[in-house]
Amino acid sequence: MFLINCPYCGERDQQEFKAGGEAHIKRPKQPTELSDDEWAEYLFMRKNIKGVQFERWNHAHGCRKWFNMVRDTSNDEIKATYKMGEKPPAQ
């Protein structure tokens, strides 16, 4: 995993990017209604998958835009990158 395909800039060196953790965690619509368990789930609990996982990345030293990535954490192979708001590609 040395090159990352930014959906806005194309292939760039990995060092230009920052990882932002698990993707598609839904922000609660009604935070005031949340129980402690639901807060813990939203804030702290992570799938931390060994295998194909969906992640957020930021092109920090480039266009500075956030995007999503599908990546295999068992061998660091990048399957796809796609823009925020787009549907994840079928795996």
Binding site: A40, E41, M45, K47, N48, I49, K50
Partner: peptide
């Protein structure tokens, strides 16, 4: 590092990142 993998087998989630 594989704690989350084992947790997943037991059907629970942990606040970990490996």
């Amino acid at each position: 590092g594989h704690s989350s993998v084992i947790a997943n087998m037991a059907g629970i989630k942990l606040p970990l990142e490996s």
